[in-house]
Design a binder for these strands. Structure first.
Lengths: 141, 141
DNA sequence: CTCCTGTTTAATAATAATTATCATCTAAAC
DNA sequence: GTTTAGATGATAATTATTATTAAACAGGAG
């Protein structure tokens, strides 16, 4: 908890209970929640917190590189407190999203893209879609 | 032009002037326009066409696999009449999007993802971001 | 070619996600 | 403690997209 406070201060951000809650929640989950999901999850703890605060806080965190915003083609964004470079896979059935460990092929892929296009790449978003193991099993019933 | 008509009919779609215009426009450009951009581009040709028609038409085309929808993390979707599997690079400065030829590393990447996650992948979206050659030059001034 | 029927269009309203406004409040510097 | 810049909360506004519905039209039957 103190660690989270320190991180926010390092970035010159005021430490408020709302920010701590959102940050803590994001760091302790792997479900890649949307703003709405975060809002609902924290209602018990912060009954007066408004959804706009969640959006503004997330935006601040994204600006400061503390969380990343995922755009999986759904109707809303999802957020991830793991800011290391990694890709995501989403199940097309249950819509869950999981992190991918760093893929060996990615550096070669980046080189291929840079040399064929002349772009100087800054980053990439790699999204994979398919059926997760759980939904595969259920499909067999 | 007749070819476009034939393609729509093959898919059991009624051929209307609006649909032909949108289809033709998408097929003759590489700018990956948004619904809004298409709407504005066709205003001269179809002054009465509404934005809702553009959305509905695009949606129909996507359902029938005639165009694909890109989700680059902007505030709106972009559309591409090239439905072959390919990736995209976007310039972070001028926001232009270009198609990538099929990348050699992709099949290996898919295999890596499938074996590490147990997912059965159906498709993927690979977006790369960076500075295009033109904007690189301008940056030197 | 003309009529019929189901689809498409256009205008409009509705919805959903996100952002802006602004008065109030509070963290943290003094 | 006071002060103050920045954060919050209530609400309105905005933007992208979808739904509704009446009028228009494409395409096939006769």
């Amino acid at each position: 908890m103190l660690e989270l406070t320190a991180i926010l201060k390092e970035h010159g951000l005021k430490v408020t209970p709302q920010r701590l809650s959102i940050f803590k929640m994001l760091r302790s989950t792997h479900i890649h929640p949307s703003a709405e999901t975060i809002y609902k999850a924290l209602q018990a703890e912060h009954p007066t917190m408004s959804l706009a605060t969640v959006y503004k806080t997330l935006d601040t965190f994204v600006q400061h590189g503390l969380v990343q915003q995922l755009n999986l083609g759904e109707d809303s964004y999802r957020y991830d407190a793991d800011t290391s470079k990694h890709s995501h896979v989403q199940c097309t059935k249950c819509k869950s999203v999981i992190d991918l460990p760093s893929l060996n092929q990615v550096p070669a892929l980046r080189n291929e893209v840079q040399s064929t296009t002349g772009f100087i790449l800054s980053h990439e978003q790699l999204y994979f879609y398919g059926l997760c193991p759980t939904c595969q099993e259920e499909g067999q019933n």
